[in-house]
Design a protein around this nucleic acid. Structure first.
Lengths: 204, 204
DNA sequence: ACCTGAACACCGTTCAAGT
DNA sequence: ACCTGAACACCGTTCAAGT
């Protein structure tokens, strides 16, 4: 379990750097993330990260990529677990999965969303990101094919629900929703969006 | 217009620093924001910001504060301009105001949301932030009092619409919505939330 | 009150050199 | 292939000193 005390050849410095970086990120924030400090912590020279991450941004991109991959895996598991249920239940499960991740790794999530804003995304980051955001549109498409959702451009509908979930995540991360109450709030918000907030009219 | 070339006593270094910082922020990103570079650009010593912003974080907080103040002013103007209209039109106007700001100042918006995550918010930042996010709940409350919106905890309803708008902003900033199409997409998304996405049932 | 200049303790990145 | 040590050009922050 512990990598002994080799004077040389650390073993898998790349993995250790990623692990230490994530811990430092959640403990002290992105701003304080320092390659030299990570090197010190791992007992290697400050120049040794170079071989594994050519630049600090590369380390950040790698962190963001594994973040989106975990994000994706959690959502995939949630949808799989809700296979037989109706589409509202499945949407709720995916939303809860996203929110659970957000509350567990708030600093990593912030880093992920910051990394997303880069002009030229590394390809692995892009595919991880696309996969992570594919679940809600897919569920909506199935609901629409089953006639459970109003017709219309599926892309447009996915935008609506996607915005709600992303907004909930942002609000929850800010601590504006107590973690305990998520299981009651999220289904209600999803229900509100599905059933509408206006009185009277059913829809056009 | 130009502050002459005083060897001493710059005039209002504080304002100049804020202005230069915002320009540098949008041009090169938060990561590259440097007090020393701003000082060079303004032709003052690298230690001179100290009197106006005790720390770099103080400069960032000041930027975030003016950002939220402008955000607030724009939303207030939008609601004032839509005074006589129905509550759906007013919600749409506010959402469009938020989105317009986001697309105009994406880096500043990112800085504002990052600043919001600080454990101990400076009081002016907090009040600016609260004021900026007060418009949607207020419109919803009025709509509810007029019987135009389903009954229920107003705070909960505001959460739903607030999440949608915040989510749209996040998605728009990522460039996933073409700026031109906002005027058609936003009313449609707001309408979807108000009228619901499910077929059949009006509501419970 | 506001700014300067020097100093301190940090950074990321590069590169020859070691094993 | 992987790591080290020294070097370079930057940082933020502090503080005595100047006006």
């Amino acid at each position: 379990m512990k990598p002994a005390n080799h004077p040389y050849h650390h073993g898998n410095l790349r993995q250790e750097l990623l692990r230490a970086a994530e811990a430092a990120l959640e403990a002290r924030g992105v701003q304080q993330l320092s390659l030299r400090e990570l090197s010190r912590e791992l007992g290697v020279s400050h120049a040794s990260p170079q071989r594994h991450f050519a630049t600090k941004q590369d380390l950040i991109n790698a962190l963001a990529t594994v973040g989106f991959q975990r994000f994706d895996a959690i959502a995939a598991k949630a949808t799989a677990a809700a296979r037989g249920q109706d589409f509202k239940a499945r949407l709720t499960k995916v939303a809860l999965a996203h929110l659970g991740f957000a509350l567990k790794h708030p600093a990593l999530l912030a880093l992920m969303f910051e990394a997303k804003r880069q002009p030229a995304l590394p390809p692995e980051l892009l595919t991880a990101l696309q996969s992570a955001f594919s679940h809600i549109p897919r569920i909506l498409k199935e609901g629409q094919e089953a006639g459970k959702i109003v017709p219309g451009d599926p892309h447009r509908l996915a935008l609506t629900i996607g915005a709600v979930v992303q907004g909930l995540v942002a609000i929850a991360v800010d601590g504006k929703i107590k973690g305990d109450s998520l299981k009651v709030i999220v289904p209600e918000v999803i229900g509100q969006v599905l059933n509408g907030l206006s009185t009277g009219k059913a829809k056009a």
